[in-house]
């Protein structure tokens, strides 16, 4: 067992984990943050995407111990404390970018990173940028619409987007 200390959604936490414990297991099993999902075992589906120090990563492909000292943001940490949705979350709702909701947390976390790391997004960049996130329900059509709108909203509501 190793001790890991990290910040998750702004709160400092310390837990004892095995070397083999994955970050996603730390989040789900030790911290009860079940919004981050697991959809595959080959690091391809993106259901598990969270932000580590502001960058999107697959939490199923990172050891919990590797997150020691880092800041992790999960889907639970995206909306404002009063429940106001992050502009990207709001855009997914507005444009029906989710159906069963299983891919959604990872999809939204990837989309937020995508929006932040691109000055300009168009349909092609969004589709390519979501390469690491598989959705079986939506056919991506509305996800693409949502991400474009969400990115636009993040630009026009920077304060809220920065709350993340």
């Amino acid at each position: 067992m190793t001790s890991v200390s990290l910040k998750v959604n702004g709160k400092s936490v310390t837990r004892e984990v095995e070397g083999r414990t994955l970050l996603v297991q730390l989040l789900r099993d030790h911290l009860g943050l079940t919004g981050t999902h697991v959809g595959c075992d080959t690091s391809q589906c993106g259901a598990c995407v969270v932000h580590v120090d502001g960058e999107s990563i697959k939490s199923c492909t990172m050891l919990a111990v590797q997150a020691n000292g880092l800041e992790v943001t999960t889907i639970e940490g995206l909306a404002a404390a009063d429940g106001t949705l992050h502009p990207m979350q709001a855009a997914f709702r507005e444009h029906h970018g989710l159906q069963c909701g299983y891919c959604t947390p990872g999809m939204v976390m990837s989309a937020v990173d995508l929006a932040k790391s691109h000055e300009h997004l168009d349909e092609k960049t969004v589709r390519e940028g979501l390469e690491g996130n598989i959705c079986r329900c939506t056919g991506y059509h509305n996800i693409v619409k949502a991400v474009l709108a969400g990115a636009e909203a993040m630009r026009s509501q920077p304060a809220q987007a920065a709350a993340e």
């Binding site: 919004g35 999960t74 909306a79 997914f92 709702r93 989710l98 909701g101 959604t104």
Partner: peptide, 17 residues
């Protein structure tokens, strides 16, 4: 707009796992 979205978008869905 969907009423189920808020919980799914904020990571509060309750799936079996």
């Amino acid at each position: 707009k969907r009423r189920e979205d808020f919980r799914f978008l904020t990571g509060q869905g309750t799936y079996t796992d």
